[in-house]
Amino acid sequence: MFFDGNIFWLFMGILTVVVGGGFNEFAKSRGWTLTWWKWALAVVWYIIFMMGFYAWGTLIGENEGSAGFRFFLMIAFISAILAVGLWRLLAIGSSKNVNTQ
């Protein structure tokens, strides 16, 4: 089965690097200076957000898809709230007059 095999998790690892790269560029375009603790907070947020998807799928596999979807909505809601706080934290120390060109 592909989705529980080593190749799949290697692929997930590659995607994580790509997501990280994209986030890094996004932060630069916003003028954010990504310190280690900002990276750590972003990683924690991302794990929580992705856990919602993983849990949803797991509960679908248990034939508890409705519960899985409700759980996902809860995680998405929590993630949205956390994202607002994270956004403000990431913006700490950002450079002024950002030229995004």
Binding site: M1, F3, D4, F8, F11, M12, L15, M50, F53, Y54, A55, W56, G57, T58, L59, I60, G61, E62, N63
Partner: peptide, 12 residues
Amino acid sequence: GLVAAGNVQGSS
């Protein structure tokens, strides 16, 4: 991918 992987784990 995580939804699919979760699904596989949930029914494994």
